[in-house]
């Protein structure tokens, strides 16, 4: 490193300063999305922080029979029952087994609340809204349904609001409804 020329060194220094800058400070907060970045299988995803109540490392998960494959099970979330779903099912990603490093991102809005299983957490960052790109042609249909955009570095930003509002994610079985006859 001592042999680097003066100009080279200044180039490297400038890059280092640029790299060191937290992403959130690069531009003003206007048009910025605060997101939580995580990994599903080998892909990088993000969800807007405002829908994320908390990131919760869980130990035991109780699988529930008679539920769709995307329901991983229920966990004891500070004395409450939290259902956890695996988006990998919808995104045609390989469903890995669970391990003790599993975490759930707890999504909450209004009365709806559930956990999304993630394989690894990458932390929070800010994304300039205008840099978000439309769906890539490789994204399958359902992923597009929940898509907010794709960042230039390939992180798929999901729309937490759509996930929370999607009735298709709510398990409501045929029986045991107690509906009154019309």
């Amino acid at each position: 490193m001592n042999t680097a020329s003066h100009t080279d060194q200044s180039i490297l220094d400038a890059r280092a300063r640029e790299l060191a800058r937290p992403i959130s400070r690069r531009t003003s907060a206007e048009g910025q999305l605060a997101v939580v970045e995580f990994q599903l299988a080998h892909e990088c995803y993000a969800i807007e922080s405002r829908f994320v109540a908390e990131v919760f490392p869980f130990g035991d998960i109780t699988p529930l029979p008679s539920t769709p494959a995307f329901v991983v099970g229920i966990v004891n979330f500070r004395g409450r029952v939290l259902s956890v779903i695996d988006l990998k099912f919808f995104f045609q990603l390989p469903m890995k087994g669970l391990n003790d490093r599993n975490r759930a991102i707890v999504l909450r809005s209004g009365n709806m609340e559930f956990g999304v299983l993630v394989d690894a957490m990458h932390g929070t960052r800010r994304i300039a809204q205008e840099t978000l790109q439309e769906a890539l042609p490789t994204l399958s249909g359902i992923r597009e349904k929940y898509l907010k955009g794709v960042t230039p570095d390939g992180v798929v930003v999901l729309d937490g609001g759509k996930l929370l509002a999607d009735d298709a994610l709510v398990v409501r079985d045929r029986t045991n409804k107690g509906e009154r006859e019309p």
Binding site: D60, L64, P65, V71, I74, R80, V81, S83, F114, N176
Partner: peptide, 27 residues
Amino acid sequence: VRSLGPQLASVTNISGAAMLGSGALVP
């Protein structure tokens, strides 16, 4: 008895979850 949470509004065969002394959940 505890409900399974809003995302699992009703599940065939399962009416809720029980929390045992260990904190473990059992359907």
